[in-house]
Structures are given as C-alpha cells and as structure tokens.
Design a protein around this nucleic acid. Structure first.
Lengths: 121, 121
DNA sequence: CCAGCGTATCGACAAGCATCGAAGCAAGGA
DNA sequence: TCCTTGCTTCGATGCTTGTCGATACGCTGG
C-alpha cells in the first residue's frame, strides 16, 4: 500500500509541510477545511492512539512493528482498530515486511497540524 | 472565573509555552500525559468548535463576543455547549463585560499543543 | 420592578465510538 | 499440507457526544 523506501529520520527539512489548511488565525475556517482539520485532531483525541503514536514516533527511524507497541493496556484487536484510525487520518503509513507489519509516522502531516496551531499568523 | 487583564495580542514572546507534556518523539507517553493531551486534541476535534475557535483567534486581540461568532450553522445552546468544551480544555477563557460575554484564546496552551507535535524532538 | 435581550443550563434523543471475543487472512516452518 | 504466529475484520454492546427546544439566569433600560 505504501512505498518501499523507509524514511530515514522523522526530521523535517525546510518546507516539508503539506499545505493543508491555513493557520487558525488567518480568518474564518471554511466548512470543508474545518472538517478536514477536525478529522486530524480527532485521530489524536484518544489516549490509546496518542500512546501508540508516541511509541512509533519515538522509535528509531520513526517506525515500529505492531508487536513492539501493542502493549498499551487494551486488546490486540483494539490496537489494530486504533492504528487503522491513525492511518486513515494520514498520520501513519503501514507496510508489511514478511510476517510483521510496520507503521511509520507521516512527518509532513504532523508538521501541517503544528503549523495550523501557529498563533504567529 | 478569569482575569480582568485582557491579553494584548496572541503573540508569543520567547518561552511563553506552558510546560504540559513532552513532545511525542521524546519516548513513550505516560497514561496521565496521554489523557491530558487527548483532552486538548478532543476539544479541537469538532468542525463547529474549530470554526468558533478560528473566529476568535482571528479577531483583533484574540478575543470576540459570543454574538460575533455565533453564526456557525447550529443553534445558540449548541454554540454555548461548544464554547464550554473549549473553555474546559483550557483553550479559551471567558469574561463577562456588561451584557456580553467575551471569549479569549489562551496562547500558551495552544503553543503547548503545537510543541507536542514538533517532530524535531 | 418588570420587560427584553444575551447567554447558560437542563433533559431528551440519535448518532458515533471504544472495546471486546470470535473468526478470518497472510506468511513461514515442519 | 497442516499448524503456528502476527495482524485485521466482523458483530455486538455500552458509553460518550452533538444536537435541539424549553427553561433559567444575568444584565440593562424604562
């Protein structure tokens, strides 16, 4: 489903931010932009998802096997459910390598979220 | 409930970030930190709240009267409900001045959220 | 003190969501 | 080919949440 190249480090070079929505200080949000942004924030609005995401983001290379992060206090199907939500929101990508499935953070999408919250608009 | 001093501008001077939680790349999130962060993101996970918030943030001085922003396509009680959610999450403060109630953005809290999303941890 | 306007709370309802166990699918080894 | 292991999907369930109309509260002017 995703590329074979593995992102070396979740470090942003200059300008590596997907232009998604204007910063919240830049005037009224359109209905469409509001829904797009709300979807991203909703993906991070659950403690379990946040812990899964931080586990992946803090792994070397910004990627981790499901088996490395599954210990967050909920059942394994629930972990899979949450990873799917994060993937659908564009915050993670996934890739099967043999027996295991690896999840990677999508740095540009995360950077876009941070940019929306920049009050120095 | 809040102070009488009105924030002059939602501009951040150096270091004006409430130390809330470590950036998501700084290792596994504790249960408590994950819940605190999830509460903040949840506050912005609704299109109506996002539009209300952007209307306030884009107003001069980072504050607005309810009557100035209430036109977001839902009923007045619903607007009040959403503003309460944003207030409870710490993203807004409110202040009654005569007949009207003014809402202000809490710049340091928003900056803290942006800091959590900084992948250059 | 009463009427009117702006805002908040209440109670109810429908829709959404997190969670689980069971079952399904994919890959690898015996 | 069968079994095992890793992960996903399915179906059900209980809780949370967005929404509204009705009502209550706070302030101002008459």
């Amino acid at each position: 489903m995703s590329k074979s190249e593995v992102v070396e480090l979740p470090v942003l070079q200059g300008g590596d931010v997907v232009p998604c929505c204007p910063p919240i200080t830049a005037g009224e949000l359109s209905q469409a932009d509001a829904e797009k942004m709300a979807g991203m924030f909703k993906a991070l609005s659950d403690p379990v998802r946040l812990r899964l995401f931080s586990k992946i983001a803090s792994h070397p290379g910004g990627e981790a096997c499901v088996c490395d992060i599954a210990d967050v206090g909920v059942s394994q199907p629930t972990v899979s459910h949450h990873l799917k939500k994060l993937r659908e929101a564009g915050l993670l990508t996934s890739e099967r390598r043999g027996t295991w499935v690896y999840y990677q953070v999508a740095p540009s999408v995360v950077a876009a979220m941070a940019a929306m919250l920049d009050l120095r608009g």
